[in-house]
Structures are given as structure tokens and as C-alpha cells.
């Protein structure tokens, strides 16, 4: 009997010692990575004149009006003033593309516009021009809530994204969820583990010394757990982006954000 009690007590202690699996973060507990940053980094994000990403936004603004491709057409030629036409647009991406029968992210949408309407070549992934255009378009949604479309056609892709998010991967054998759902707020070698919300992309990352997209960030995480990154624009990246955006639905867009 004593022995049984001791075993039960040991099991209880073990249960208490093992951190509870937090699971999905409740909407009221969601926090932008902004909240965990130093005052200096927050100030850098908040002030356009010192936010390094402003240089990309300004480049994007120039590209918006520049004619491109065999159609000799600019973005502005169709869409007009981005402050009006692009307001809230990137907040809704990834969105379902009828022709591809799959979700596309905002950078893929820019390239679809180039190939379909400007008869121009797609801009390479993470190229300066593509990131600049995306940052400029994203800037028009700053302060608006992320609003992934309530489109039933997205459902299987969302499910795929969630499966990838919870899949243990790489030589380190970690899932996204194990860090960003179960252990956010803790210290990883002095860095606070963020919840991993994609509310500021494209963003200026001090580690990169440049502006990059969410896919670039996901690539970093995969490399960190020693997993094979997907190729840029792989459907699995877009599925993950879609899941992350839905997970952050309602959070305010900070594009172009600054992160350490």
C-alpha cells in the first residue's frame, strides 16, 4: 500500500514537473513579437525616419509607378493610388488563386500580376525589387487587422499548414508548436522565444541587415532545427504561411516591422 502511494506520489510529481503542453494560444493571450523587443528596437519600428525598412518601402513606391514588361504597364496603371487600392489587401493574404487552384502569398500575387498583366518575368524570390514592392504594398495595411479570407477552398491548405506546424522535424526533432505554442516567453540562449506571429512581414531583421519575407524567416527556423528547408514558393511554405496568418487573425499588421 505504501509502495503504491509512493508510486502515485511520484507520478504526480512527474506530472507537475513536466511542463503542461500549452497547445494553441488563446486569442486574448496572443502577443506580437513587438512586445518582447527592447525599447530601442520598438522605437526603430515606430519611427519611419529611423526604420531601415523605409528604404525598401520607398523603393517599392518607385517600382509601383514604373512601367515593366512587354505590356509596358505599371502597377499604378491598373491599381492607381496604392494608399487607396492596396489598403487592407496584404492583410488578407495568402488568398486562393482561381487559376492556380491554390493559395498564393502576397509576393506570389505580385509575380502573378507581372506575368499575367505586365508580361514581365517574375521577380526572383527574396530579390530586392520583390521585397520592396511587397513592403510597400504591406505598408498600406499597417494598423489593420490580419483578415485571412473565410474561403472554404482554403480549408485543406490550412489543415496542411497546421500539420506542418505541429510536425517534429530536423535533426533537433522540434515542431514549430513546441517552441511557439508551448514555450513562448522563455529564454533560448538569452533570446525570448516569440509566439511566432507573422504580423510584420516583410520586415527588417537586424540579424539579416535587410528586409525579408516570411518564407525567409521560416527557412531560418527550419535551418535552426537542422531540417531541410523547402524550396522558395513550395506549396508547403504557403500552407504554413496560411496557417500562421489564420493563427494571428485579428492581430494588427506592423509591416514593415523591425525584429532582432
Amino acid at each position: 500500500m505504501m509502495r503504491k502511494a509512493a508510486i502515485l506520489a511520484a507520478m504526480l510529481v512527474t506530472a507537475l514537473a513536466v511542463p503542461a503542453l500549452a497547445g494553441e494560444i488563446a486569442p486574448q493571450d496572443r502577443k506580437s513579437g513587438y512586445t518582447g523587443m527592447s525599447a530601442e528596437n520598438r522605437a526603430m519600428q515606430d519611427d519611419d525616419t529611423i526604420n531601415p525598412a523605409t528604404l525598401w518601402v520607398l523603393d517599392g513606391e518607385a517600382l509601383w509607378s514604373a512601367k515593366a514588361g512587354a505590356a509596358n504597364q505599371s502597377c499604378a496603371g491598373c491599381h492607381g493610388d496604392a494608399a487607396v487600392s492596396m489598403k487592407g489587401v496584404s492583410a488578407r493574404y495568402p488568398a486562393f488563386d482561381d487559376a492556380s487552384r491554390a493559395p498564393v502569398d502576397i509576393e506570389q500575387r505580385i509575380n502573378l500580376c507581372r506575368t499575367r498583366h505586365q508580361n514581365a518575368t517574375p521577380l526572383p524570390p527574396e530579390s530586392r525589387d520583390l521585397v520592396a514592392l511587397s513592403a510597400f504594398i504591406g505598408r498600406q495595411s499597417r494598423g489593420l487587422p490580419i483578415a485571412t479570407p473565410d474561403d472554404p477552398r482554403l480549408k485543406p491548405f490550412l489543415a496542411r499548414g497546421k500539420a506542418l506546424y505541429t510536425q517534429r522535424q530536423g535533426q533537433i526533432n522540434l515542431s514549430c508548436a513546441q517552441c511557439h505554442d508551448d514555450n513562448w516567453g522563455r529564454n533560448l540562449a538569452g533570446n525570448i522565444v516569440p509566439q511566432g506571429h507573422p504580423n510584420g512581414y516583410p520586415l527588417y531583421r537586424l540579424e539579416w541587415q535587410s528586409v525579408g519575407t516570411l518564407q525567409r524567416r521560416l527557412r531560418n527556423c527550419l535551418t535552426g532545427i537542422r531540417a531541410e528547408p523547402y524550396a522558395y514558393n513550395a506549396p508547403d511554405y504557403v500552407a504554413l504561411e496560411l496557417y500562421l496568418r489564420q493563427r494571428a487573425a485579428g492581430m494588427l499588421v506592423e509591416t514593415p516591422a523591425v525584429r532582432p
Binding site: Q167, Q169, Q171, N173, C179, T223, A227
Partner: peptide, 16 residues
């Protein structure tokens, strides 16, 4: 969350 330091099976998408 601790990785298994001496194990090569049962892992997914390990970098080549």
C-alpha cells in the same frame, strides 16, 4: 523537447 543526441531513426526532413 530535448533532442535525442544518439539517434538517427524516426526523424523527419533532416537536412541532407
Amino acid at each position: 523537447i530535448m533532442p535525442s543526441y544518439y539517434r538517427v531513426d524516426g526523424l523527419t526532413r533532416v537536412t541532407p
